[in-house]
């Protein structure tokens, strides 16, 4: 009888006994009524083909439930539904808010491995359809992100047309130093600088010299953009990735749409870290 020490089992047993007793009692009552009961009471005035109906007061419990429902209905109509209505958008907003809070606290200080992992995930979903899974730009269909400049012609285009060559919006990417004017160099000078820059700042002494005189005042003597004042020409640093994601870009390859509002700051940093890791 070990199982009787469990109080749920005791309750279940008591309940079963109560149901049994009540069932027998009620059944006995009705059997008695069928055997001995006689019709009594006052008939209503209406009758249908000689079949009449007794006047019966509605049961108290039923009446209370009916009146209660009416009161509840008025409350629900005026207060319950208008003030407590379920909103799918409201639930969505709360879901997003709580997720963002969790995301921010979890990734407040991401390690380099965290950033690379997150960056790869974001890249595969958001960037790979155009830049390719290996980020090489699918045979020239988009920028090859494993290199800072794909070709000399890309640099030349920007020298010739200024930052208007980047197209978007109003020809700039929102850097502090503003827009790059068109035609800072031309002819052989432009060629030399373009070769120098596209080669990764190697060789071409004439290009190196010209770069210092024509480009370094904004892009810095090392071409790294002076900590985000102007685009970094050596590598994809955090500011340039962030600026391009915010503003989109229109280069000689084609149009890149803006991803404004689609990635968080941490995700942007992660994408930048992942892209940098590709060219290392």
């Amino acid at each position: 009888m070990n199982w009787l020490s469990d109080n749920v089992n005791q309750l279940a047993l008591l309940g079963a006994a109560a149901i049994l007793i009540l069932t027998i009692g009620v059944a006995a009552k009705y059997f008695k009524q069928i055997k001995e009961g006689k019709s009594e009471g006052e008939l209503k005035e209406e009758n249908w083909d000689g079949i009449g109906e007794y006047k019966n007061n509605s049961p108290i419990g039923w009446s209370l439930a009916f009146i209660g429902t009416i009161i509840w209905g008025v409350w629900y109509w005026l207060v319950g539904y208008p003030l407590n209505a379920y909103s799918q958008i409201g639930e969505y907003n709360e879901e997003v808010k709580s997720y963002q809070a969790k995301f921010e606290s979890k990734w407040a200080n991401p390690s380099k491995e965290d950033l690379l992992g997150m960056g790869e995930g974001v890249f595969l979903v958001q960037c790979s359809p155009c830049h390719g899974i290996d980020a090489t730009g699918i045979e020239g269909k988009a920028q090859d992100l494993t290199r800072r400049f794909v070709s000399k012609s890309q640099v030349l285009d920007v020298i010739k047309r200024g930052s208007a060559a980047l197209g978007n919006p109003n020809g700039q990417l929102g850097y502090q130093l503003g827009m790059m004017p068109p035609g800072l160099l031309s002819g052989a000078d432009a060629e030399a600088v373009a070769t120098y820059v596209a080669n990764g700042f190697k060789g071409n002494n004439k290009g190196a010299e010209l770069f210092q005189s024509a480009c370094a005042s904004c892009h810095g003597p090392d071409g790294r953009g002076m900590n985000g004042m102007a685009p970094n020409l050596r590598e994809y640093d955090d500011p340039i990735i962030s600026h391009v994601l915010q503003h989109g870009k229109q280069g000689i390859i084609g149009i890149m749409p803006s991803f404004k509002g689609r990635l968080t700051k941490v995700q942007e940093r992660a994408v930048a870290a992942y892209i940098r890791s590709l060219s290392e």
Partner: peptide, 10 residues
């Protein structure tokens, strides 16, 4: 918002 004409053609 996130695809371009040349991408669709390809």
């Amino acid at each position: 918002n996130y695809r371009t004409s040349d991408w669709h053609a390809n």
